[in-house]
Amino acid sequence: MSVAVCLLLYGFAVVVLAPRLLRRLSTEGAAPRIAVAAWLAAMASTVLAWTVTLAIIIIDLVTHRISLFPARFMDSCLLHLHDAAVGDYGGHMQTGLFVLSGFATLAVLVLVLAVRLGTTLLRSRRTTLEHARMARLAGRHHPGLNAVVLAVDHPAAYCVAGKPHTIVVSRGVLAALEDHHLDAVLSHERAHLDGRHHLLLTLTRGLATVLPRVELFTLGASEVARLLEMLADDVAARIHGREAVLQALLTLSTLPTPPATAEAALLPRVRRLSAPENPPRLHTRIAVTAITLTAVFIPVAAIVTAGIGLQVCAV
């Protein structure tokens, strides 16, 4: 039970402390890949800690606490549950029943959240696949660009995961960008698909939808999306140069209705691309890496400890 308490407290500590600390370390995108790993580790470890906490408590109650109930308790379940609730079997039994009821309610809540998350992820996948299919039907495939071109003046440039993956650009974007700037935009979108960023976005946004009042997940979803844009910028810059990516981003952002790819975290992205290319500071990399490793190590160590304890007790 002590392991469960530690994991529960760890989860709450991460929820309270991690958002502001991680945002402070990743605001300028000094090490976006490590920062993404840190956000994902914090979110995943919190979900893991709370899930394992619930499992440990249920196992502990079932295997060790049931013996506290008197044999006659099972003779008439509803009657004796009432007697236990009103304290006829003593304060310890009454407290135990209320604790068990609380954890049962928590288990139902976790199950409901898990079902909602699964439903959200499935709905998101169906929507994405349908969007990709409709884009391919509405536009025409451009072999030279390896993208689907929509015959609309409204500027649009984005990627959609599907079967197959699809990069979509509009006629308005083709008219606005020079060839090398357009190549930089297409490389940016291919980087999203090659890095499977859509899977990370689907998961983080799903958690934010299911737990909208938990800042770790809501802020984490927006921060991960922003950092993934920076990662894609870096990939495109390695191929076409930082200046080409910067000019493409600035050109798209000055259009009357800029596409979403240019609006996402525009100022930090422009600042990164405009600044001299310097490696991230050592202390920043160390701090973000330490947070990532800590977020992973603590719940894993606690789970291993709980597993060893269960094995020892079984023997």
Score class of each variant (00 low, 15 high):
105 T>R: 08
138 A>P: 00
66 I>M: 12
90 G>W: 00
129 L>T: 11
150 L>S: 04
158 Y>I: 06
115 V>F: 13
91 G>D: 07
80 H>D: 14
137 L>C: 05
63 T>K: 14
106 L>M: 12
99 V>H: 10
122 L>K: 14
158 Y>V: 03
116 R>K: 11
148 V>Y: 01
109 L>H: 05
108 V>G: 07
109 L>K: 01
94 Q>R: 14
114 A>V: 00
129 L>K: 06
109 L>R: 06
103 F>I: 15
174 L>C: 09
69 F>K: 14
94 Q>Y: 04
163 K>V: 07
164 P>L: 02
99 V>I: 14
97 L>I: 09
74 M>H: 08
91 G>V: 07
148 V>F: 02
106 L>T: 09
92 H>K: 10
144 G>M: 00
74 M>W: 13
121 L>D: 07
91 G>A: 10
158 Y>G: 00
103 F>V: 14
146 N>P: 00
63 T>D: 15
64 H>W: 05
136 R>P: 00
96 G>A: 09
93 M>C: 08
115 V>E: 09
114 A>H: 02
130 E>Y: 09
139 G>P: 04
163 K>D: 09
142 H>D: 15
72 R>G: 14
64 H>R: 15
155 P>G: 09
73 F>A: 01
64 H>Y: 01
147 A>R: 05
165 H>A: 10
133 R>C: 00
104 A>L: 14
76 S>L: 04
175 A>K: 15
123 R>V: 14
84 A>G: 11
102 G>W: 07
136 R>A: 11
110 V>D: 06
172 G>D: 01
107 A>I: 08
151 A>Q: 15
127 T>N: 15
173 V>F: 08
83 D>K: 13
166 T>L: 04
82 H>M: 11
151 A>E: 13
122 L>D: 14
140 R>I: 08
164 P>A: 05
157 A>N: 00
104 A>Q: 09
103 F>S: 04
89 Y>I: 02
162 G>M: 12
81 L>D: 10
73 F>T: 01
93 M>P: 00
87 G>C: 07
144 G>N: 06
71 A>E: 13
146 N>A: 03
146 N>E: 13
109 L>E: 08
66 I>E: 04
170 S>V: 05
176 A>W: 03
134 M>E: 11
173 V>Q: 06
121 L>I: 14
101 S>Q: 05
76 S>Y: 01
122 L>V: 10
143 P>I: 02
82 H>V: 11
154 H>W: 09
94 Q>L: 08
69 F>W: 14
105 T>N: 03
67 S>Y: 02
114 A>L: 09
97 L>D: 08
67 S>H: 11
163 K>T: 11
112 V>W: 08
97 L>V: 06
90 G>L: 01
155 P>H: 07
91 G>T: 10
175 A>W: 03
171 R>W: 02
148 V>T: 13
139 G>Y: 10
162 G>I: 02
168 V>D: 10
169 V>F: 03
98 F>I: 07
100 L>R: 07
145 L>M: 12
113 L>D: 12
134 M>I: 09
163 K>N: 11
169 V>P: 01
151 A>Y: 10
175 A>Q: 12
115 V>N: 03
92 H>L: 12
131 H>A: 12
66 I>R: 06
140 R>A: 10
158 Y>T: 13
94 Q>A: 14
145 L>P: 10
171 R>I: 02
97 L>Y: 02
153 D>G: 12
125 R>Y: 11
166 T>P: 01
109 L>A: 15
123 R>Q: 15
143 P>Q: 06
85 A>T: 06
86 V>F: 00
143 P>M: 07
